[in-house]
Amino acid sequence: MAEPIDDIAAALPAPRLDALRATLAERAAASGLLDVAYRSLETELGSLLLASTPEGLVSVTFDGDHPDATLERLAVAVSPRVLEAPARLDDAARGLARLIDGRARRFEGRLDLSLARGFGRQVIEQLQRIPYGETRSYAQVAASIGSPRAVRAVGTACRRNPLPIAIPCHRVVRSDGQLGQYVGGVEAKRRLLGLESGAARGEREAEAMPE
């Protein structure tokens, strides 16, 4: 591969690549060619990577500061037409930020569950039914989907939840009361559950108070 001759290339003004890439993402979305849009989001739980398809938010991972591996996985699992397009994910980012700082109790916005298939899909659909501020054990979740012996598989499905925080896999804990694993680390799970139980308790106390 020939290197461009320096004096020729140096005569050209440098491109405004960030602006060009933003325009490209907009044009791609308008042409229906943006299959996977992504952005990072800095939160108290760490740096998140959010990705969406035209159907909705499709992936949340805890690697916003080193996204390459996840982007490669999405290129294979969804489509290689992947572009950074923060504006397309503004609503999703706001929705997650509100959950993380306790201003919202459920994710408002469309979700694309296509990355969860088969048994995993069954599990995360069940997770969406666990109320805010409550927890279930892995065994309870297994029983609730009619597979009481699949406790370990439920654990795996929770770990593989493509949409943590938005779909509350953090509300599933061990039967012995320990927190169990979490895709974003145990500390993140503790914070989310602490936030939720505090908010839920606060509300019950407020309801109990005489007017």
């Binding site: 290339a9 491109p15 405004r16 060009l20 982007l71 490669e72 999405l74 294979v76 290689p80 572009l83």
Partner: peptide
């Protein structure tokens, strides 16, 4: 499998710019 397209843009954006900008003024090159 294919790399995410974004990585292709990051890797070759400047090269494509040189080709466009050598033949066109700034707005047309963009």
């Amino acid at each position: 499998s294919r790399a995410p397209f974004d990585a292709i843009v990051a890797l070759h954006g400047a090269r494509v710019w040189r080709v466009c900008r050598a033949l066109l003024d700034e707005p047309d090159a963009e």
